[in-house]
């Protein structure tokens, strides 16, 4: 099978995306639009549709949970918050990210 750069990029982004979503939710209770706004600013996602399946998966893995809240302007909204299990997951991911960061830096910088 041909190796496509887009696939590799998407794979890389995916792991990082989980980390970022968990991190955003761990700060305070948020609803998807808040998350989307942050991720779009960071250029991590292009379309919003990417987020919903991810949230669903994290929720099913018991890393997140949500509660319904009435909204003034539209339909009721799902507000997401992190679970204790998710908190542990996040800190582990954070460590891995830092390790990877160092590892990538060390193995790709030429002046070692």
């Amino acid at each position: 099978m041909e190796l496509k750069i887009e696939n590799t990029k998407a794979q890389m982004r995916k792991g990082v995306l989980e980390l970022c979503v968990l991190s955003i939710i761990s700060e305070k209770e948020v609803y998807p639009s808040d998350i989307i706004k942050k991720l779009k600013e960071a250029k991590l996602i292009v379309v919003e549709g990417t987020l919903y399946p991810l949230l669903n998966r994290l929720k099913n893995a018991d890393l997140l949970d949500y509660s319904w809240k009435e909204s003034l302007s539209g339909p009721p909204r799902k507000y997401y918050h992190i679970t204790p299990h998710g908190q542990g997951f996040l800190s582990e991911l954070m460590t891995t990210w830092e390790e990877l960061n160092t590892a990538v830096y060390r193995s790709t910088s030429k002046n070692q």
Binding site: A10, Q11, R13, K14, V47, E48, G49, P53, R57
Partner: peptide, 19 residues
Amino acid sequence: EILGTPEEFGAESTNSMYE
């Protein structure tokens, strides 16, 4: 345009790495 088409949802579909 904002939500994106299923193709644009990208890798975040059913074919996630460990699932």
